[in-house]
């Protein structure tokens, strides 16, 4: 009798927390507003400005992480006890991605299950992880080397936008 009561309590608690988890808003990547200076310009100058801005954005794509170098999106990522920096990486579907990862203290690792990636990161060494972002969505990445008490919370999100 006691056994079943406890199991029911545990079940209810789990379901409540589950529902709470489901309804929680995922905090996505906030887009940085492009700061624009308002100034008196001639129509012509305004047009040139606009074209230049379009060009600039298509090259650096502010909504995405890192920079495009020779057609490959390069993103630097640092690992330390117990966090990744940045914690969210945003790339575009279909593009070639090169993560330049480095650990600042002990051995960590970068594991992205959805992309079958597991790169070990010995301290101080830059490691390159290349892949093509073929699947769109939000993917979890986790530290793939046991690095201490906070290893369980050492994770981040890879967002592949359509």
């Amino acid at each position: 009798m006691k056994k079943s009561t406890l199991l029911i309590v545990a079940g209810i608690l789990l379901i409540t927390l589950l529902l709470y988890g489901c309804t929680r808003k995922e905090h996505g990547q906030e887009m940085k507003p492009v700061a624009e200076q308002e100034s008196a310009m001639t129509e012509y100058a305004e047009e040139v400005e606009l074209k230049e801005r379009e060009k600039r954005v298509s090259e650096s794509d502010e909504e995405y992480s890192g920079n495009k170098v020779n057609g490959v999106r390069e993103i630097k990522i640092e690992a330390r006890q117990f966090a990744f920096e940045p914690v969210t990486i945003v790339v575009k579907k279909g593009e070639r991605v090169r993560l330049i990862a480095k650990s600042l203290d002990v051995t960590h690792g970068l594991g992205i299950e959805a992309y079958n990636i597991d790169q070990k990161l010995p301290p101080g060494q830059e490691k390159f992880i290349e892949f093509t972002a073929v699947k769109s969505g939000k993917f979890h990445f986790h530290c793939s080397v046991y690095c201490g008490t906070g290893h369980g919370k050492m994770h981040g999100t890879l967002i592949v936008k359509e």
């Binding site: 056994k3 406890l6 199991l7 545990a10 608690l13 927390l17 589950l18 709470y20 369980g152």
Partner: peptide, 21 residues
């Protein structure tokens, strides 16, 4: 045993909240 199940369920729930369902 039931207490351990309860504790593990709490860990699971907290983890789920952190990592997403």
């Amino acid at each position: 045993k039931n207490q351990l199940i309860l504790v593990l369920s709490i860990f699971a729930a907290v983890g789920m909240f952190q990592l997403g369902i």
